[in-house]
């Protein structure tokens, strides 16, 4: 037996206790490779490759624009409706994709989870980052559509959009981390997420205006509209629209009264947005606590 005396012996410790999300960032190299693998593998073997990541959002956008905008006439109530949709769609799709892929992440990587000890938060975090990378094509489309329809830079473009993104990222991570743990025990959670994802695009003022929601709730108790506005995704969508859509229409003087009304955003967007991010971080902290407890028996559940 040859024992190397030159290196001081590390102390005895319990294996299998990770440092949570913090630990993930200590494994940045692995995180980078996992994200790169996902992106490489996704379009492997297709002729168009990354081109597909543009086709899907374009298809989604076309359906909304043609059906809701032209056939149902939303085009006439909201000026520059195309940008109104795309500004919301980019972030909403980032959230739905992140929510479902994080929820499934631990289960999908079960062969690793039950054999090798890694900080398990690695899987939801890399799933969220992959969704963030997939946000890029949506943003490119958004930049083009906004650019050709008279967008001009305003001081609040960057803070507005970043705050909207921060809402989606913190809530997506928090909910995803929580559900990825539960999903190991009962796969029903991934089905619940699938259902929620169908509802999400309709729950935000992306293919309709906040003004229409206000009209619908007029004369009803205040808590109803407040409940609608309490949805973090609603704030995030409006922040993104404030950055990319408002500048394309706010200087037009040919707007009808109903079009003018559709320009109105929810009050105190920044304040509310910051509060929502703060709540999201609190939720993330709570999700980490729960995840750490659930994680203890992942290996035998999978």
């Amino acid at each position: 037996m040859a024992t190397s005396d030159s290196v001081p012996a590390p102390s005895l410790r319990d294996p299998g206790y990770g440092g949570g999300l913090v630990d993930v960032f200590r494994h940045r190299h692995l995180l980078k490779l996992l994200v790169r693998k996902e992106i490489r593998v996704r379009y492997q073997g297709s002729v168009l490759g990354m081109g597909w990541s543009y086709i899907k959002p374009l298809a989604r956008f076309s359906v909304y624009f043609v059906i809701i905008g032209i056939i149902l006439g939303m085009n006439r109530a909201i000026p520059n409706f195309a940008v109104h949709i795309v500004a919301g769609m980019a972030l909403v799709h980032f959230f739905t994709e992140a929510f479902s892929s994080t929820t499934n992440s631990v289960w999908r990587n079960r062969s690793l989870v039950r054999k090798i000890f890694l900080p398990r938060e690695m899987f939801p975090v890399s799933a969220l980052l992959v969704s963030a990378v997939n946000l890029v094509p949506g943003l490119v489309i958004l930049a083009i559509v906004a650019g050709v329809t008279g967008w001009h830079p305003t001081w609040d473009v960057v803070p507005s959009f970043l705050l909207g993104f921060a809402i989606m990222a913190t809530w997506g991570m928090a909910l995803g981390l929580l559900l990825s743990g539960f999903n190991v025990y009962f796969r029903d959670f991934s089905k619940v997420v699938e259902v929620i994802i169908v509802l999400i695009p309709w729950s935000t003022p992306m293919i309709y205006s906040l003004d229409l929601v206000r009209n619908a709730f007029a004369g009803r108790p205040d808590w109803m509209i407040e409940l609608y506005l309490a949805n973090p995704l609603v704030e995030a969508v409006m922040l993104s629209q404030q950055a990319f859509w408002s500048p394309t229409v706010d200087q037009r003087d040919d707007l009808t009264a109903s079009e003018q009304a559709s320009l109105e955003m929810a009050p105190h967007l920044y304040e509310r947005g910051l509060i929502i991010v703060a709540i999201g971080l609190l939720l993330l902290w709570f999700a980490q606590k729960v995840f750490t407890r659930l994680e203890a028996s992942f290996a035998e559940q999978l």
Binding site: P10, L12, D14, G16
Partner: peptide, 25 residues
């Protein structure tokens, strides 16, 4: 290896753990 945790008793390991647990995991 820390993949599972004991229900009773204590497992302690000194240093980093490597392994030929699943080749090509």
């Amino acid at each position: 290896s820390g993949v599972m945790r004991p229900d009773e008793g204590e497992v302690r390991v000194r240093g980093r753990i490597a392994g030929l647990v699943e080749l090509g995991a």
